[in-house]
Structure formats: C-alpha cells, structure tokens
Design a protein around this nucleic acid. Structure first.
Lengths: 255, 255
DNA sequence: CGAGACTTTGACCGTAGTCAATTTATGTGG
DNA sequence: CCACATAAATTGACTACGGTCAAAGTCTCG
C-alpha cells in the first residue's frame, strides 16, 4: 500500500445511499423506495482484490456500475510490461458498448470490489428507465474522456507532474462521491499500480513521492493522502478540474 | 515532412469510389447509384493543412467522416506542450457523441482534409439508414479502441518501439483502405507531429528514425515509408494487428 | 535567390530506469 | 501475542534513454 494500514473507508454499505454517496455520481438517478434498493443490493457481484473481471462476448452484460471499491482497466504486454488505462471508482460505469474489441481491455479489481449490472439499476426504476440509461451513458462518456487526460499525463508531463495530476483527479472524483474528508482521501493503491498507470518505474514513483512529501506538497501515510494547496498544485501539474464549465448534476433523489 | 516532396496520393477523388477506397472502411456502406454519390460529394467540407475544425456545441453535427487527407485529435497545454491523441485517416469517423466534454479534444487537419457529416451518408442511403449508422458506430468504436493502443505506446514502449508500433498501425489502417502499395505508403507528417503523438522530442524522433533507417528496418524518403519485414517488426514493437480475430468487413458495394 | 519550414547533427545534461540490498509493514499459523 | 513468511516501500550506486540548446544543412516555393 502507498501508506500503511488498510481500511474500508472506500467501501459503501447500503445505508450509504441515504447520503451523498458514490452513486450520486449517476446524475439524476432516483431510487424510489428502499425495497428497490434492497433488491438491487442483492444482485451486487463481489470480487476480491486483483481479480480479473471477465466480460467476454458470451456474457450479455454491457454496462457495469461500480458500487464500492477500486477497479482499473489495463493491458499487459507479452513481455510483462503493464499499462493501466483508468481507475474506476464507486459510481463509475464501465461501458463495453463503446468498444469494438472488448478483448483488448482487461477490467480488474484493485481492492475488494462490488459491481452491479446497469440493467439492474434500470430495472429498479421502470418509470425512468430512459433517464437512468441516459445518466449511465453520460457517466460512461466521462470515463472515456478521462482517457485523454491520462494520455496527456503519460505523454507530456514529468514524473512529478504526473503524480500530482493524477492525485488531483482522484481527489476531485472521490470528492464528487463524498469520499474526501478535509482534503484527505484513502488511496488503496500500491506504488506498483501507480507506476503502471503513470508509465514510470516503481522505484521512480517512490522517489517522486518522497520528493513531494519532503517538499510539503502532499502528506501520504497510512494509505491516505492529503493534498496541500490544491490550486497551486493544479497550476503546477497542468490539472484542470473536469467540472470546470459544466452544469452540476445534483442527484435529484436527495434534495 | 518526414521525407521530402509532398503529393496527393493521400487524397481521394470521387472516382475513387469505384475501387477499394477509404470508405470501404465503412463496413457495409452501399452507395446505390452515382447520382447519390455526387450529391454527397457536393456536401464535402474542405480544410487546408493545420486547420482547427470546430465542433462546438452550437453546430449540430456529431459524427464526421474523413473522406480524404489526414487529421488528428489533440490537446495543447497552457505552456505549449502538445499531445496528439489519434490520427484520423480516410474512412475514419470522429464521433463526438461519445464525449461528454467536446471542448477537451481539438480536432484538426494535418494535410488538406475533406470531411462529410455522417448525416449526409445516412441520408444518401435512406433504405439502409440503420445499417449505415451501425457501421459508423462500429468504425467510431474502433477509433476509440485505438486510444488504448496509443496509451500503451506512450506509457510502456521505448522510443524505437513507439515509432515502429505506430508505423505498423498506420500501415494496417492505410492498407485497409487501399492506400498501401508494396509495403509502402505516404506519410504526410512532420517529425514534430510524430514527436507530439509519441510523447518524445523532435530531436529524439529524428535520431530514432535515423537508427531505424541505418538498421535497415525502414526506408523513409520522399514522404513515403516502407516497413521491411513487418512480422519481425511487429514482434519487436509489441504490435498486434487490430484485425487479428475479427470478421472481415468487405464492402458489399464493390463485390 | 532568399525566406521559412523541416531535418539533421553535435555536445552536454538530467530524468528516469535497472539492479540489488535493506527496512518496514501485513498477515498467518501456532 | 509472537515468529516467520511475504508483500510493499526504501535506498544506494550506476546506467542510459531521451531532452535541451544551438548550429548547420535541405527542401520548397514564391
């Protein structure tokens, strides 16, 4: 782990739906009543850390929603090198509809992970099926857009910038789903995962983190990170909040 | 230019539809008669090299099809660094439907460029509207998938591997639309563009190309490239043909 | 022929990679 | 609750890939 001690602060319980939780990211989703939530809760699939989640052509499911935990999309080269394309957080949608060749992206869990098939969410809201589907598409589109940010990170930023830029993105995404407290959030990733995401070696990631720590830019311990002076860090790392000029998507069901 | 002298071998004329041309990449597209092709030809938009193609929210168009020339999607950082996300070749589709934040990707021409709005193609085929639309989606999905290959390139391959891997991809894509002759194809890109796509500096791209040339891996002159021993190069550069296990999409209208 | 865009080369530097050893968790069985 | 095994984080020494700066050479085109 990047810091130390694990924890379950990154896991959600059904009760969490009562407060601005991860699924709030699913713009406009409304859960009419508790019983529906329960039924949906029962169809959650659970995976242990580092599990490969198969989504072959035989399985009909095409959109998966992360309920709790962290996942990622990755590709491993024949010689063992690995590139992580994206991190998937609670509320994110993996939309396989958008890919012509599902085989080329591997979806795996990084922590214990819970997912539901989007079909279940849509079925839970028969009256708003279309609006739910639309929300899912929107969230999936955002996930795709982030691939570009990640490409810029890897292609054009220095190691320090890459690390900060990614941490800033994760901060914002986690904050959007209520998983940030006082600028601090859990980061259940090993340095190896970080390295594979940012196109750097483990050793260099380690040294980069040290530097950022010593320079007082971040605090990283016990598996939690705190970013000090985000505006400044954002400028330094060429980070742009993805919600800059966007309309807000406050979840209607919690007004 | 990467080699020397320009040329129009990468541009298409209407007559080209009679032979396996770029639009063959649009699986299943059928052009019932010449008059329709003409009408569609009249709605082609033309751009000079290095033009920014605006696709703001005000313009209703959402899917653009490249008819001739090369384009790219890119992002420029505040300090001038630039990352090119993808190259767009004849037959490719730019699907803005898939992006929640169009502002974050800039679409520009690299050579003289001709595009048509997908609407036009669909309208040209009233009886097969749905199948044409489906083809467009498929092509767009492939374009998206390629972003991942590009990410691997930038994140995990060495300079030599990156260059070869990209050349191999371009070879295959151009071959699919009949723009490769005897393992040779036109490459109307400057080394700067190459550098910005591969996350390297111009100087290093130049040296890498020299090395590949001297090692006899490629021939690069007069704006054309020849790849020698592609199977070997593919293995070396971790390149996998995207059509590996895929069904072929021979254009029905030219059988 | 000259201007400007592109390519090429040399000299030198620095970021990031590799290898290998050490320290510090984390976790499991007794 | 401790001992040991394993995973993860650190650190040092050394290397090398790729970046920067600057100058010279080429090509194209008006």
């Amino acid at each position: 782990m990047l810091g130390t001690r694990p924890s379950e602060l990154n896991a959600l319980t059904p009760g969490a739906f009562g407060i601005p939780g991860p699924l709030a990211a699913l713009a406009g989703l409304r859960f009419a009543d508790i019983s529906r939530i329960r039924s949906f809760w029962r169809s959650v699939e659970r995976y242990p850390p580092s599990a490969m989640i198969h989504v072959s052509r035989k399985s009909p499911r095409k959109q998966l929603v992360i309920v709790s935990g962290w996942g990622c999309e990755t590709r491993i080269l024949p010689d063992g090198r690995r590139q992580i394309f994206s991190f998937l957080l609670p509320g994110d949608v993996v939309d396989l509809t958008r890919s012509a060749q599902v085989e080329r992206r591997t979806f795996m869990s990084l922590t214990r992970l819970e997912i539901v098939d989007a079909e279940v969410l849509i079925a839970a809201e028969p009256n708003d099926a279309e609006s739910v589907a639309e929300s899912l598409r929107l969230v999936a589109a955002r996930t795709e857009d982030r691939l570009l940010d990640h490409m810029v990170r890897i292609g054009r930023l220095s190691a320090k910038e890459r690390v900060l830029n990614l941490l800033l993105e994760l901060h914002d995404r986690l904050q959007a789903v209520g998983m940030v407290k006082e600028d601090t959030f859990r980061l259940p990733l090993t340095q190896e995962v970080f390295a594979d995401a940012l196109g750097l070696s483990i050793v260099h990631i380690n040294r980069t983190l040290q530097q950022l720590r010593r320079a007082g830019r971040i605090t990283l311990k016990a598996g939690s990170v705190t970013l000090h002076d985000r505006p400044k860090l954002s400028a330094y790392a060429c980070y742009e909040n993805e919600n800059h000029q966007k309309r807000s998507f406050a979840p209607a069901f919690m007004a």
